[in-house]
Design a protein around this nucleic acid. Structure first.
Lengths: 155, 155
DNA sequence: CATATAAACTTTAAGCATAAAATATTTTTA
DNA sequence: TAAAAATATTTTATGCTTAAAGTTTATATG
């Protein structure tokens, strides 16, 4: 006879994978909501703005508009508005690309770099707190496990 | 002397947790993008619309507007527009609540239930495919591991 | 060289999301 | 019971997001 289990019996993999997806979604959305709230309260900014700044911070010479959308995997038109607003705030500038009058290189200003440094430090601390249940080793293991193929989408 | 490692040495937990977060974000966004694309191509609908239908499908007697936003953890005003459009399409109806003229109960129509059944089956198959690298046992283990406290937010 | 194609970017239309304010109704309280 | 507080929902303002169409500039092709 089937013994009573602490957990319900394993259903087919399809159901368990669906459960995992719903859990991942709930967890990441919860963390994103907290980040959004913190960014608003502490820095009067948003997650998409931070994402653009973070992308730029990794490239000393800035990025072209299309490179930003490529790195962040968002649509082209999306980046236009976010960069507009960051530029209005003096955190970055559009620099014409010599020899190609279609393109612009987006670079952080000094003010942008300083502001981003503060935001990045806070961001890392918030994440470390929210994922505090994972040891460094656990985190590394899970990072590897969640490296899905996702149609081999690097660059 | 420190031996050469297959992976870089463990940095402090903070950095490893940040890496895990970035990986989770990349993975869930990738899956969400694929789902959005599939929902659009196969059913001419969106993920938020599916989420509302999924919430309603679990309650025979429907849900009030505020209950939908509570279950889905989205803002009140957000649900108004999504329900408006689903109602326009005849997939659900707003039913007045007897004895409280402020409130409405949102219920799926027969058409809505039939459409949702098709969508849910496809959704489960898409997820099972994208998370195919996880066995049923792995999926269950990970689902448990990602049950973050997140300020004990159930209902 | 003229034109066609491609590339870089912006604009538009529609929908999703939040926070905050507004409206209507119900319940509590003085 | 009248005024105040709470509840249920919608509306408004702002920003993010995509897909698709449009503009300008660059490159390829006849």
């Amino acid at each position: 006879m089937t013994p009573t289990l602490a957990q319900p019996p394993l259903e087919d993999a399809s159901k368990e994978r669906l459960r995992l997806w719903l859990r991942l979604l709930k967890t990441t959305r919860g963390i994103e909501a907290k980040l959004r709230e913190n960014f608003r309260a502490e820095f009067d900014t948003t997650l998409p703005r931070f994402d653009v700044m973070a992308a730029l911070s990794r490239y000393e010479d800035g990025l072209k508009m299309s490179e930003i959308s490529g790195v962040l995997r968002v649509s082209n038109g999306n980046v236009t508005g976010i960069v507009d607003r960051l530029a209005d705030d003096g955190l970055l500038v559009r620099v014409p690309v010599p020899g190609d009058r279609r393109a612009h290189r987006v670079c952080m200003t000094r003010k942008g770099r300083e502001e981003f440094a503060r935001q990045a430090a806070a961001h890392e601390a918030w994440i470390a707190d929210m994922l505090g249940q994972f040891s460094a080793e656990d985190a590394r293991t899970l990072t590897t496990e969640f490296n899905l193929p996702e149609e081999a989408n690097d660059r």
